[in-house]
Design a protein around this nucleic acid. Sequence first.
DNA 1: CCAAGATTGGACTATTCCGTCCAGAACGAT
DNA 2: ATCGTTCTGGACGGAATAGTCCAATCTTGG
Lengths: 178, 178
Amino acid sequence: MYVRGVNATTLDEVRAASGTSKSQLYQHFADKDQLVRAVVALRAGQVLEREQGYLERLRSFRGLLRWRDALVQRNALQNGAYGCALGSMASELSDQDDEARTTLAETFAAWTGLIAAGLRRMQISGALAEAADPDKLAVGLMAALQGGYLLAETQQDIAPMETALDMALDHIRSFLTK
Amino acid sequence: MYVRGVNATTLDEVRAASGTSKSQLYQHFADKDQLVRAVVALRAGQVLEREQGYLERLRSFRGLLRWRDALVQRNALQNGAYGCALGSMASELSDQDDEARTTLAETFAAWTGLIAAGLRRMQISGALAEAADPDKLAVGLMAALQGGYLLAETQQDIAPMETALDMALDHIRSFLTK
DNA sequence: CCAAGATTGGACTATTCCGTCCAGAACGAT
DNA sequence: ATCGTTCTGGACGGAATAGTCCAATCTTGG
């Protein structure tokens, strides 16, 4: 579903990819919508867990740069194709399945929250100026990331993703105390 | 297609919405893919024309703020739903129809180019520092815009779009000469 | 080890939707 | 006005895909 898109993925493809049968599929999921929601929940959990690993101990600007590099590198492996696992589903599902949209909105909020928490730790340690607003900076960074994913996917080139993240990080850098 | 998504839109819906019949549809378009590409080209042209109207005479930071306000206001009318006309199609089509992807990539490039040209005029007039890189700033701003659209669509709230654009504009502001 | 119950594979049905086709209407040349 | 040509509406065929069902198989408690 990540590669082909949610709507373009058929249950037969799911069946083949999972090496199971229709009856098993319908044993676990009432219909395709429920399956899609389960996929959304699964990917949301995976992304959050991965990001938590990177971000929960974030305490410095260099940590942010490492985080940036990891994301760029992962996306470079596929030349930007498919975009962000959450972003592509969000774009396709938000106006189509309100339950999925809610899950995705909460996941984006949690993800952004991880960044904001890291920025707040930088503030407490004195690395980041008090004048900085961690929540707004985190939302801006997340938007730059998602927009970067989208432009990279469209251009089949991760350059715009790097540029976007660098801009957001430059902006955060301007709030460093030295 | 903008509202329901490209893949979720049926030709019967197109037929009903256009007040025509199947034979007329197939008179003009060989198949659904061709219709989709025509839609992409049409919307791309419309967006570029609209943006050209806003951006071709951009010469000041206040002009950028007005541009920002116009985009936010337009998106507020639908509470962020459906996202950017180009962005939502880009996300759905980029890994599915290479011709559509190319058109969208070129359109994003042209749109970004309009912004970059405006920034360059600001540089020539001395409002923007020579150290600023108009192309990179424009890409960053476009990514913030697209990411903002996506987050706003997912949250059904334009606040993240505003935050993202404000961040990008703040960053540009830091390159103003006074 | 056996029988009742649960699970499975995959054939089958129902539905949706893309694309075709033709009878009749509209048009235009003479 | 008439006749040949073009165009149109929308019924229809066929392919793709969601969802059902049951005979065969596996599992489990006694």
